[in-house]
Amino acid sequence: MRLHPALGPLLVGLALAALSHPGVASVIAMSLGAPARRPLSATRLVELGSHHLALASLGLALVGSLGVGLGVVATRRRAERLRRTIDAAAAVAQAVPPVVVVALALPLLGFGGPPTLLALVAYGIMPTLRSTVGAIEAVSPEAREAGIALGLTSRQVLTQVELPLAGAGILDALRVALVLSIATTAVGALAGASTLGTPIVAGLQNQNLMPMLQGAGATAALAFLGDALMLGAVALLRR
């Protein structure tokens, strides 16, 4: 029997979440011989986590709608000339890492959420767009032609043939975008956004092991749980 693909990330995510719990984290820190300091409370972690999740979901919603929408537009017959421009733009966008976007946006947008959101969109949109284009192009021409032969309009071919067949591929692109946006949101802590990256950055600055460990565990847990969720959705769609 093959294990469900979402099972691995789910278990890792739960283990990491347990690790970030104040009780467990202080035991680990003690066993490592770190000076006993007060750990972050569970409520504080949940509060930071929900901020993190809200910011990452907003970013994912923007990246998803823009990336998939533009991907659909780019695969239309009329936009064929845009294809090379999209590939070039994707390569350039990848050359600007999220830290750099956050840093550049800081003087323009100020501290907190806005520079993080800009980084989320700027870094996430091109990979999503490219994968969407790839997924739609992977739809077999026979299926498309069968749709046309049945007398479907080009809009119906899109909604009834292309999108259902490319669905799993697009969902996979969104899974990568989700993991990316959770990671980028953690970087946003550098710009003062209150996310799960905040205890890590603060811990690194004050040489305090405990929040570093808890923040790292919780951020990674969030990423793995999101990954598991999307893998589960992909598996459901493929069935």
Partner: peptide, 13 residues
């Protein structure tokens, strides 16, 4: 899947 900030923080810890 591990966010870079988390890996760096966790490794240092």
């Amino acid at each position: 899947v591990v966010p870079a900030v988390a890996l760096l923080g966790g490794l240092v810890a």
